[in-house]
């Protein structure tokens, strides 16, 4: 079964444990500035929103890459940057409509979420369940369940 990151912004408190876990996994340093998941704080609305790559099936970044440095991880479906191949041309960062591929000036390559080979560290680091890793075909399951719970209430009342 392929899985997918699922984000529920209503549960996010803005603690940045996900950014720490992500950066440590990929760089060996606790460094949110290198995180591939980013929490945005909309101060005046009281909303905090974690955001990262959704792993498009037909991925703009992959299609745009002139050197085929972005490949599909068959096991997870993640679009993964092969650093050895990447030439740092940044075309993928322009092609991605969501901004989730970014250039790292210090190494001259791009980086994006690779789903940590199927064990996303942001998920295990999140203390509130705002980020989960669920069946890719059923990302709507929780929402469906919530709405389902509101139907046929007559049976409960009876």
């Amino acid at each position: 079964m392929q899985k997918s990151l699922h984000i529920d912004p209503a549960k996010c408190t803005g603690c940045l444990q996900c950014e720490m876990a992500c950066s440590y996994e990929h760089t060996g340093v606790i460094n949110p500035s290198k995180s591939r998941i980013k929490v945005f704080n909309f101060e005046h609305e009281g909303r905090k929103v974690p955001y990262t790559c959704t792993q498009c099936a037909d991925a703009w970044c992959m299609n745009a890459c002139p050197v085929e440095a972005i490949v599909i991880d068959a096991a997870t479906g993640a679009k993964v940057v092969k650093e050895a191949t990447c030439v740092g041309c940044k075309v993928c960062t322009i092609a991605c409509p969501f901004g989730t591929v970014n250039y790292m000036a210090d190494v001259g390559k791009v980086q994006k979420c690779d789903l940590c080979a199927g064990d996303p560290k942001c998920v295990s680091a999140c203390p509130t369940g705002a980020i989960t890793y669920v069946d890719a075909d059923w990302t709507g399951l929780d929402r469906m369940r919530a709405w389902a719970a509101r139907t046929n209430t007559a049976a409960v009342a009876a």
Partner: peptide
């Protein structure tokens, strides 16, 4: 700061 904490 973009250097992070590396020395744990």
């Amino acid at each position: 700061g973009t250097q992070g904490v590396s020395g744990i």
